[in-house]
Design a protein around this nucleic acid. Structure first.
Lengths: 115, 115
DNA sequence: GCAATGATACAATTATTATTGAAATATGCA
DNA sequence: TGCATATTTCAATAATAATTGTATCATTGC
């Protein structure tokens, strides 16, 4: 995955309604949902939902296919996986036990305590 | 993790230099790097790097601690893990084999072929 | 204390993105 | 064909984020 693709995908997710849409579709799996159901679920107008769905599609995170008079959107598992891989690549210089094991318990000194 | 925290973290990553910084720090693990080394590595001005580092810190993705006259930034493994978990929660309605196994080979009909 | 280095804060400009409603397109069915 | 439903496009406005240079703060060593 290239940097600008990753940026596009992250920017697509960095919006409350789009993030809700994405997470909703993640739970639904490959079968997905029609756009109208999605709009209702995230309390968006048809126009707004369409805009956001297009952004997520353009980013490669979801995929819409027409199904009769509906357009059914589903998560793109490949797109999701590629993004997650890109974010975590070469974690801890080939010592991932630093991430998975020990470090999980390191006390953070950050201002952002919640994280 | 709350929605607005996730949006903040994703927005922080949705920027080329910040994404480069994050990935650089992911490879470095808990020891991290001084801000000046980071600025040089991603070809940012000191001012620019400081701005971006602050954004990532505010988002809970990295953590800066003063080390003499340097400020050393390291990835926040907790923050990273929480974000990834938030994105993939309840994947495929409790049938994650849809994500991990079969679905990996489903042919996508998306316009975005690369993803 | 003072100079040097590393890092941050501030403010102004510029660029990008979100939002909204009206109009247009696509499909299914009588 | 013509109507109803689902979805998208377009255009205008509003809101938000990025960029840059200057000034300021923090730490070390003389």
């Amino acid at each position: 995955m290239k940097e600008d693709q990753a940026v596009t995908a992250l920017a697509a997710l960095a919006h409350p309604q789009r993030l809700r849409i994405f997470r909703l579709l993640v739970t639904k799996g490959p079968s997905g949902l029609p756009a109208s159901d999605i709009a209702e679920a995230v309390e968006a107008s048809p126009t707004g939902a369409s805009f956001h769905l297009k952004e997520l599609d353009r980013a490669g995170l979801i995929c819409g296919t027409r199904d009769g008079r509906y357009v059914r959107y589903a998560v793109s598992v490949e797109g999701m996986r590629k993004l997650l891989t890109y974010l975590t690549e070469d974690c801890c210089q080939g010592h991932p036990e630093l991430c998975g094991g020990t470090v999980r318990r390191v006390r953070s000194l950050c201002k952002s305590k919640g994280a």
